[in-house]
Design a binder for these strands. Structure first.
Length: 551
RNA sequence: GCUCUCGUAGUUUAAUGGAUAAAAUGCCUCCCUCCGAAGGAGGCGCUGCAGGUUCGAUUCCUGCCGGGAGCACCA
């Protein structure tokens, strides 16, 4: 790859100048008018060398001129940026890779690493809510980024199948046998204040399994709930390898806490971890009733994960509000399992807020993840009226999933998201469907071009230069692998989203300006269309956004 | 009160300490005898405030102002 060549070349040249360890970057300039790659190396090294940046830049250019394959021109600009322009042949080579190479965009960042990614984490007996949708979207994309970077990934889902919420749902079901589990939970939850003792008692009964009727209700509700989640995962495109449950992690966590008195201490009848010793807060791991809290259960979870096989990295995708607790749990876990030191990572996401009240759920006023998806799907169908599609239902579903995933993945993680369902379905500009549309369009174009007899032999390089005078689609295209690698390194899918939107826009613009089938350079145009189709397709997969065959 | 986090066009979001702060949406103009108009072309409009570090700050540091989350037996 040209970028690596440039990187290495600069490294060598800097070392020769006496600044071997200065950090610098090679990336694409804001404007392709400057070139295909740019570096701040001269600026970064200037101070260290006690020279002015232009001098250093001159020296670097002198050392690099003509030495890097594929680089046609090197220029100094502004305060001391060095811009590299690739030759037309070099770009053509990359575009051909984009069009045909199976591993285009993949890298070896996590080669031979084993990674477990835990995400989604809904609770049986409760609704699959919007937070779960966010966790799933981010987690799935990160899992795919890892895979695309050579890691062995196992997807894990941790679900709370015990606790007061379960008692609320079962109590609700007892009162209203005809209600769905989601409704039963809402009912029980609303009545909790007035029937607290009753429901707490039921909770104990559930734990101790003393009442066969309750056990039967519990088992059927749990199974129904989990089966239902599977349908949602299928729509979202996730397949989990491991399912963990609080019913297992609770007892295990309790045992772990009991077995490590050197880590924990008694306080006010509870067992706590004094986080202050590590700049953190004190957290309760076992409450005064002797029951494990979230924190102890997490220890049980860590242990359960270890039992599935060793890993180099364990990543948890969860909400912002958990972040402080997670730090405490991680510290405690590292004290108990020294081999885990540095291997536990977390990514936190914010809330998803809806801008409009119009998308109210069909049941009550709770907007669940599912109802949001269903409403989006209906809206997508509405938009597709009058189209002649083979499988409109599937397409509507793919579009709805694309719309919501895009909204989650278009920004850096950790921030709250304001989601406007109507805008996301307007299918204009910045949206999942915009990417899907561009991909579908490229695929359609390729099919028609091939049917019309456009062949693969690319026209001469000089002709292409003329043809492309003002178009930069190919220059943008070749940066995809670098974008995917950065996203994987930082575990930030939004770099891919941003790039994809840019690429789709560049393609649409190109498409409006150029004739492929009966144009002057049909073969190169076809190659470009194929490269775009491949790249958009691979990028959508990285994001976990479905790729419709038609729309 | 303490800790964490975030303040960028009217709105939703980008921008590894770098070049003229970038898109989308919105509003105003245009473009289908033409491979998909869910599209394209053009115009209008932005870094909360005050200092500091730096050749250079949306980015790093300090203070202030303003959102959000958390701060012992829920998860």
């Amino acid at each position: 790859m040209d970028q690596e060549e440039i990187q290495k070349g600069i490294q060598k040249a800097l070392a020769a100048l006496g600044a071997p360890d200065v950090p610098f970057v090679v990336d694409r300039p804001g404007d392709f008018a400057h070139g295909d790659y740019a570096t701040n190396a001269a600026l970064a090294a200037a101070k260290h060398l006690g020279k002015n940046p232009r001098e250093v830049a001159d020296a670097l250019v002198g050392a690099l001129e003509g030495k890097i394959e594929g680089v046609q021109k090197i220029e100094i600009a502004g305060p001391g940026f060095i811009n590299f322009r690739l030759s037309r042949q070099a770009i053509l080579k990359e575009v051909q890779k984009a069009a045909t190479d199976e591993v285009w965009g993949q890298n070896n960042l996590y080669k031979n690493k084993t990674v477990m990614v835990e995400y989604t984490d809904p609770n049986p007996f409760k609704e699959f809510h919007i937070g779960h949708l966010m966790s799933n979207t981010i987690g799935e994309s990160i899992a795919r980024l890892f895979e695309s970077s050579g890691a062995q990934v196992s997807r894990a889902n941790y679900q709370g199948d015990l606790g007061v919420h379960v008692a609320k749902a079962i109590w609700g079901k007892q009162q209203q046998p005809d209600a769905s589990w989601g409704e039963a939970y809402v009912y029980g939850s609303n009545q909790y204040e007035t029937h607290k003792e009753e429901i707490d008692e039921l909770n104990k009964t559930i734990y101790e399994k003393t009442d066969p009727a309750v056990v039967a209700l519990y088992e059927s509700g749990r199974a129904e709930s989990l089966a239902h989640f599977e349908e949602v995962y299928k729509i979202l495109g996730t397949t989990f390898a491991h399912y963990f449950f609080e019913s297992e992690t609770g007892p295990k966590g309790l045992a772990i806490v009991r077995a490590h008195p050197e880590v924990f201490e008694e306080s006010e009848g509870a067992v706590v971890f004094k986080g202050e010793n590590y700049g953190l807060h004190t957290r309760v791991f076992v409450n005064s009733k002797g029951l494990p809290t979230y924190e102890a259960k997490e220890l049980g979870l860590v242990n359960a994960k270890k039992e599935k096989g060793s890993f180099d990295l364990s990543l948890t995708i969860t909400a912002n509000e958990i972040s402080e607790y997670f730090k405490v749990v991680r510290k405690a876990a590292e004290l108990i399992f020294p081999d885990l030191d540095g291997k536990m990572l977390a990514r936190f996401h914010g809330f998803l807020k809806l801008t409009t009240g119009k998308m109210s759920s069909r049941k009550g006023n709770v907007i669940t993840g599912e109802s949001l998806l269903m409403d989006l799907k209906d809206a997508a169908k509405e938009k597709m009226q009058g189209r002649d599609l083979q499988d409109a239902d599937t397409v509507a579903e793919q579009v709805s999933v694309g719309a919501i995933k895009y909204a989650v993945l278009k920004q850096g993680s950790g921030k709250d998201i304001v989601f406007d369902p109507e805008k996301s379905l307007s299918l204009e500009g910045d949206s999942g469907p915009y990417l899907q549309y561009a991909h579908t369009r490229a695929a359609s174009l390729i099919k028609k071009a091939r049917a019309a007899g456009v062949h693969d032999a690319v026209e001469s390089v000089q002709d292409i230069e003329e043809f492309l005078k003002a178009l930069t689609l190919d220059r943008l295209l070749i940066h995809y692998p670098a974008v995917a690698e950065r996203a994987a390194r930082e575990l930030e899918p939004h770099y891919v989203t941003t790039y994809m939107t840019e690429l789709a826009a560049a393609f649409n613009s190109w498409y409006a300006n150029v004739r492929v089938i009966d144009g002057d350079y049909p073969s190169y145009a076809l190659l470009l269309a194929e490269a775009v189709e491949q790249t958009l397709g691979k990028g959508l997969k990285l994001l976990g956004i479905p790729v419709p065959k038609e729309m």
